[in-house]
Design a binder for these strands. Structure first.
Lengths: 231, 231
DNA sequence: CGACAGCAAACGTCCGATGTCTCTATAGTG
DNA sequence: CACTATAGAGACATCGGACGTTTGCTGTCG
């Protein structure tokens, strides 16, 4: 096919070139169709694709606008992509986290403010209180890591790591952790990371984060193996 | 809106649940429309979105199929996302590369075969021969880093790093490098990485890769600053 | 047995109509 | 005068059908 894909490419290049800057409003669909030489249907498909990529923001009854193009938006798709990866490639994802998250945590140790540390302490407390509630544990776990990475001030990095730790991936790991009575130990690992961050010790933060991701990876392996055995 | 997005979500969940495994063929569009309770137009938009995300493969005259869902496909979108990032966030991307690529290169040092090393040597030679041809330099530069990272055997990692080093980003850096008469020095950096890999020295590989990314980052800063000054 | 023509199925594209939502300007009201 | 309710215009959402083009298959013919 060509027409619709051409339209997608054309819109993308108009945005990339600055002809359609963030916040700009696109012409109405019929007009856009005329400009690009295809029917409104084709334009709608093209717009829909860019909307799903968070490049365009379609407001019904109003018009279509270019988003802010912030990393947090454009990299959102990474999360859904990871959700669709097959089981055997999840270990690859975990390996990337293992490479990236410790470095990011180490960097966070250098930049974290007292306020942010207190925030972490609060999350840690919540986690302890959540005990065996898998749902809440996952939620606080997500918040913990997000908060740590976010303090690097690098939104791209944060979005990437958020995406790599998709919800279903986290859920699987925690399912294993809880069933294996390792939730408590894992919460302690978070505490260790917290302590390293509070002492602004980059190396220790790096090491504790690596230990932690390693634990997650191990449990993911367990869960995947158990699941494979079921068949 | 709801109908089309519901359809997207429904298709995605059918794929994620394994109801539509890789390679599976979807029902024809009209039938799909009936199943999901919307018109063919809506189905087409949904399919188009998933096709652009490399989740579905639409073959005209034949039918629509689920792709292999390989990381290389699903993470392809990262590249186009990075292409659309605004200039001020490119430095964030570079910072992520700076964190990830050295680790990956270090890992490659442990796993690289002699054949792969020879391949690298060839690329290096090509690079030297390309001299001032920016186009070729970019191409060989891309090949060099891709080859190194690919030897980690981690397709997810490879796709991520490929995506982070988008073509336009590379092009900008090299433009700066050439205009600044630093192309030769940069090629030497590649040589240093190569030597570290050949001696299977993980730490040295890590260090040389960091030095190299750092150089790229510095030139990106220069290019961005020069561009900002133009206005 | 192989090549070719024809057919059926499926996607690509277009068109026009109608529904629904938003924004805005206007008229009305206290 | 300020505020509110409302009517209308504009824009996207969805639908239904029609027609073109491509692909894969199949049955026939040499």
């Amino acid at each position: 096919m060509a027409l619709t894909d051409d339209a997608i490419a054309k819109l993308r290049s108009m945005i990339q070139s600055g002809e359609l800057p963030p916040g700009a409003r696109l012409p109405p669909e019929p007009q856009l169709a005329a400009q690009m030489g295809l029917s409104r249907s084709g334009v709608r498909e093209a717009v829909k694709v860019l909307e799903s990529a968070r490049v365009l923001d379609v407001r019904r009854g109003d018009g279509t606008y270019v988003t802010s193009l912030a990393p947090r938006l454009l990299l959102e798709g990474l999360g859904v992509a990871v959700e669709l990866l097959r089981d055997d490639t999840l270990l690859e994802v975990m390996e990337v986290r293992r490479m990236l998250e410790p470095v990011a945590t180490g960097m966070a140790a250098l930049r974290m403010t007292d306020t942010q540390l207190d925030e972490l302490a609060q999350i840690l407390e919540d986690m302890r209180a959540a005990a065996d509630d898998a749902e809440k544990l996952i939620q606080f776990d997500t918040a913990f890591h997000h908060t740590v990475v976010a303090t690097t001030g690098n939104e791209t990095l944060t979005s990437l790591l958020d995406g790599l730790s998709s919800r279903t991936l986290r859920a699987r790991v925690w399912r294993g952790l809880i069933e294996g009575n390792a939730a408590h130990k894992t919460i302690d690992e978070h505490h260790a990371i917290y302590l390293a961050l509070r002492s602004r010790d980059q190396l220790l933060a790096h090491a504790s984060a690596l230990m932690h991701v390693n634990t997650s990876e191990a449990w993911l392996r367990t869960v995947l193996a158990a699941q494979a055995a079921e068949r």
